[in-house]
Design a protein around this nucleic acid. Structure first.
Lengths: 337, 337
DNA sequence: AGTTCTGCTGCAAACCTTTGCAGTTCTCCT
DNA sequence: AGGAGAACTGCAAAGGTTTGCAGCAGAACT
């Protein structure tokens, strides 16, 4: 029913190859012919069949994008930026959701592999070895993870965690909890490592600061909510959470236990999702450049046309945003230096 | 480089058509042959080329899903449910985001049309006439909108709005604002209509209740935040918001103006996004069965294999969830009847 | 023993487009 | 005037799969 290239060729009195070129290699065809062809194509409602094109060129002009959980507000801005960037280059984005499940994630990569030109693996929960294996089946760019030998885009959460710990220490906090995220998350390991290292560092030059890691936990509001009691019992005066969602859940959980934030416990999140500006207290958090990450990842995937295996690794800067969920620790006020 | 059907045929000593049938018509091939074929296919890492398959069958086994704004937490659960249902039937879902822009929306439908078997148009901002036109190019199921002649899935927001207004009236509120959503939203019109009608109805049997509509506004937290002052000035004692995000933004905006919810103003949202349980006060809201809607929409699209133009219209029930953002109005307590 | 049927497999066309090559016409040199 | 080159267009193969049809062997009839 839909018009094919043949219909257009017939209707405009030229060969199909000319029609083809009118679309995909305009400089090779006489402007007059071209406009005539385009006109009839328009009239017939012709749109090139992407399947046929893909069959012969080997490129689908689609890219896959797999996230751990699309319901986590961290991802949508990244997805939007990636879609925008991709559309801009005449690509489309397939978004899929692994439900935080490594097995589903692997299955998705396999299923998508044959119908996309490459896949953006965002916040993968898979083991590095598996990811390396998959990268032999399809071009991969990993986001929020560094995998040796693969192109990747990460945010400098280590720096962010350090800033957060320093901020809390400066406010006088000495006993800090790290509310960990999901198993298999590179970001989680990175934050934990950096937070503990930062505490050790600070301990060297003043009063000892201790960071204790909790988890793994579900990286959701409920995950934070559920951890509230544990946090309360442990007696931390400040908590750094794996992400904003958990931080917000934690604050609510503490509120129901009668614990006030930031008066009794300070809370810092990571991501700076749109919501964190809106809650009360406004959430102090490590801002992640998610949109930039989405754009960069698409760029990496498409830029190096066919020279697969580009091993660029991009690290984007993060920044601590101080709002109202952090306040002076029990030792008194911030020390002046 | 990747193994083709021909490689498998050669390696297992049968004709390619047998390999094809081993995958897509198992009952037509000898079980022994079949297992041998599958085995060698596995060994060679063969995966059918979907482009080639699509070319001949005319079905891509992909479906498109266009939402107004993927960053609105209302959509992800719907998307997840749709993806799940689709994957279950060996389909994949293309998600795209129109940025609340009708022009982008139309362009997306056109672009997607040729590479999917059908499109789920969720919360479209397009005019009905345009949607009807598009439905001639590609199978369409509309969600959160009723378009004559097209299959659709809607939530009974009219009922929800009525319940909300009745709830507020019962609490003693007489001057209620409706914080409207975006231009072009069917749901917005529906809620407004129902809310105003409900007020008129109530007025008939007791003290007059007035519902005043505001808007259009951006259906986001910021949209709600921005409207806070207007709401405050207007002196409503209760507000029904187009969605939870706006309701939450409004509550924060009122808080910064020193207006307490629910003591001074009651607020009701629509959607019951996950977050609404977590904020303080917990948000009273009209719960929408988003996951069910996602599943139903995919069902409608795929079920009636090729008998296009099925005109089923599904309406899913909504339910008022009462939490802490609504309280007694200025007239005193709830009246007993 | 001859016939019909069943169950399986092979053959080849078809799906729609891209692209290297060859052919044609025309312009511009020398 | 003759030849070279440019500019454009047509030809046909190729890409990987599905599927109607035909062929074949063997089983089950008569």
């Amino acid at each position: 029913m839909p018009a094919t290239i043949r219909d257009v060729a017939r209707a405009s009195g030229v060969h199909i190859s000319t029609v083809s070129r009118a679309f995909s290699a305009p400089q090779l065809v006489n402007p007059e012919t071209r406009s005539k062809v385009l006109e009839t194509a328009e009239k017939l409602g012709y749109r090139p069949n992407r399947a046929a094109r893909a069959l012969i060129t080997g490129r689908t002009h689609n890219i896959g994008l797999i996230v751990a959980d699309i319901a986590n507000p961290f991802f949508p801005p990244l997805i939007k930026a990636a879609e925008r960037e991709a559309r801009h280059r005449d690509y489309h984005v397939f978004v899929a959701d692994s439900n935080e499940d490594p097995a589903v994630e692997e299955e998705l990569v396999r299923a998508l592999a044959k119908q996309v030109d490459g896949i953006l693996l965002v916040s993968p929960r898979l083991a590095n070895s598996v990811i390396e294996g998959l990268s032999r089946e399809v071009a991969l760019v990993v986001v929020n993870r560094q995998v040796p030998g693969l192109p990747s885009v990460v945010m400098d959460v280590g720096h962010g965690a350090r800033s957060a710990i320093e901020h809390l220490a400066e406010l006088g906090h000495r006993s800090i909890g790290y509310l960990g995220g999901p198993r298999g998350s590179w970001t989680n390991r990175e934050i934990r490592r950096a937070a503990i290292a930062a505490a050790r560092n600070l301990g060297g030059l003043g009063e000892p600061v201790e960071v204790t890691a909790l988890g793994p936990n579900a990286p959701t509001g409920d995950g934070g909510l559920a951890a509230a009691e544990q946090v309360h019992r442990a007696g931390y005066t400040a908590v750094l959470a794996y992400n904003d969602l958990m931080a917000i859940g934690l604050i609510e959980g503490l509120a129901t236990l009668g614990v006030r934030v930031p008066q009794e416990v300070s809370v810092v999140g990571v991501d700076d999702i749109a919501l964190s500006r809106l809650t009360r207290p406004g959430l102090t958090t490590v801002a992640n450049p998610t949109a930039a990450a989405g754009r960069a990842a698409v760029d990496m995937l498409l830029q190096h046309g066919d020279d697969r295996r580009t091993t660029g690794q991009i690290t984007l800067a993060t920044e601590l945003v101080i709002r109202d969920s952090t306040g002076p620790g029990p030792q008194g006020n911030a020390d002046p230096g």
